[in-house]
Computed example of a mutant assay.
Amino acid sequence: MRLFALSDLHLGHAANREAMHEIRARPDDWLILAGDVAEKNEHIRFAFELFSKKFRRLAWVPGNHELWTRPGTETVRGAERYGELLGICREYGVLTPEDDYPVLDLEGGPVRLCPMFTLYDYSFRPAEIALEDAVGWARESGVLCSDEFFLSPSPHGSRSEWCRERVALTRGRLDALDDGLPTVLVNHWPLREDMAATPRIPRFSIWCGTRQTEDWHRRYRASAVVSGHIHIPSSRRLDGTAFEEVSFGYPKQWRGRRPEPDMAVRQILPA
């Protein structure tokens, strides 16, 4: 049994939906879908139906795009939208951040799989920039994330407040783990600022995570940390932990760069 991962499928694009059919079946293995599968429920269901036939089981964490509410599409917002997504996951038996963290008996030994949802709090910014000035600071460079229009934090007062709640909830669950097993931490947003660099649009960093999770790979004995969001696939190591950015990306980003879509599916463990 092996553990694979993929994120940022963006299945609103027909070319991406077509590409998913080229990913080969691995019926004995698990697949992590690390967020930004799609914005519309019909495309999220497409992914779950397709990959549940190709893999033994799926694990999912939300990205910002799943949480978007565009005018004239979804009818629920914020935390209620997250709840709706959880309901879809339960229809397909997909593991979510609200489920118990399972122990997987992989070829290299047992690990505990920990899907998480932490959001972001604009703390990936220079120390001299105040929180209330963060979005303006980013806009000075011509960058503005669409989350500011489409990702409602309702009923929370802000996305930062929602992030604090999610981090506290997740930290409490992880702190309660007492079996000493290594973990695989899965989150759409990178857990560390140094793993969230976007060289062409550096000030996009404020929408990329929270400093509250910077030491979680050490604190929770992570063999691997899986994330997406950056659209720059990479494999790096820090403190003995593998940090895997597993984005598929938009058609203009992957066409011509990968001979086969299947190559985007990253084997996480065994390494």
Rank of each mutant, 00 (worst) to 15 (best):
R211L: 10
D215L: 07
A224M: 01
T213F: 04
W216D: 00
A196T: 05
P190R: 06
H229G: 07
T183M: 06
S223L: 07
C208K: 12
R211W: 03
T183W: 02
L185R: 06
A222G: 11
N187E: 15
R192Y: 11
V225W: 00
A222H: 04
R192E: 07
L191S: 04
A197W: 13
R211F: 04
T183D: 08
W189Y: 15
R192H: 13
P199I: 03
G209I: 00
V225S: 01
D194S: 11
R203W: 02
W207M: 15
V184F: 06
F204Y: 14
C208N: 14
P182Y: 05
V225F: 00
P182S: 08
H217V: 02
W207V: 13
F204A: 15
T213P: 06
A224I: 00
D215E: 13
T198D: 14
R211D: 06
H229F: 08
R192S: 08
W189I: 07
A224S: 08
V226G: 01
R219S: 09
R218Y: 03
S205K: 14
V225H: 01
F204K: 14
H217S: 05
Y220C: 06
P199R: 03
E214I: 01
R203G: 10
P202N: 04
P182V: 04
T198S: 14
P190M: 04
H217F: 01
F204N: 13
D215M: 08
T198H: 13
R203P: 12
H217E: 00
T183Y: 02
S227H: 15
D215V: 02
E193A: 12
M195I: 04
A222P: 10
A196E: 10
V186A: 10
T198E: 14
V184Y: 07
R221L: 03
